[in-house]
Amino acid sequence: MSLERLAARTPVHVAIGFLAMGGWAVWANAVHGTGAALLAGLVQGSLSGALTLGLKRSVDWLRPRMRGPLAYLAPPLIAGGCSALLLITAHGIAGTPELWATVAVPLAVSFSYIFAYNILRQRRTERSRDA
């Protein structure tokens, strides 16, 4: 299988999200001991993998139901807000010591990703409509 085909597969994106963001959470909580760091990494990695799927699907569902500037802003804000709520709640329940440091990077990455993705898809939709 070519690298290009491999990179397009959803399980690869989920695995990368799990490893990258889970690794970040381990590092952000390392000063609190191995157990706390690994638990934070497992929570963040699992959520990042699931959110990779959820963000894209929710934006793809919301966007066609909106027009104009609202179609550019509302879907990623709604999806990203739900993502933030889920991450903060899950880490709060898990007792993640460095909660804000743990969620800051994954939220910045996911908001950047989902805004860029939504803008590109919305532009494509509008070009198709105009053609």
Rank of each mutant, 00 (worst) to 15 (best):
G54F: 12
E98P: 11
L73G: 08
I114A: 08
L86Y: 00
G80F: 06
A108M: 14
L85G: 15
I93V: 15
W61N: 03
L77M: 13
L73Y: 04
K56R: 13
P76H: 07
L73E: 01
G68T: 07
F115C: 03
T102F: 05
T96R: 04
L70D: 07
T52A: 11
T102G: 08
G68P: 00
L73S: 05
V103E: 01
A50C: 15
W61M: 12
G68I: 00
A101V: 10
S83F: 01
T96G: 04
A101H: 13
A79P: 07
A101K: 10
R57E: 15
P64A: 06
L99P: 11
V105Y: 05
Y72M: 11
N118D: 12
P106F: 00
S112H: 05
L85V: 14
K56Y: 14
L62D: 04
A90E: 10
G80Q: 04
G54S: 13
L99D: 02
G80R: 03
P106A: 09
S112T: 15
G68Q: 02
W100R: 14
R65H: 06
A116F: 07
A94Q: 12
S58T: 15
G95V: 04
R121S: 08
G49Y: 07
V105D: 02
A90S: 14
R63L: 02
C82K: 02
A101E: 05
A79M: 10
R67Q: 13
F115W: 00
T52K: 09
H91P: 14
W100T: 12
A79Y: 01
A108H: 03
V109P: 00
R67I: 06
G92P: 13
L62T: 02
T89K: 03
T96D: 11
L87T: 06
L86R: 09
L53K: 10
P76R: 07
I114R: 00
R57W: 15
G68W: 00
L70K: 02
H91V: 10
Y117P: 00
G92Y: 04
A108G: 15
F111A: 13
R63E: 13
L53V: 15
P69I: 05
S48K: 09
P69F: 01
P75T: 07
T52D: 11
G95F: 11
E98K: 10
L62S: 07
L77W: 01
S83V: 09
P75C: 10
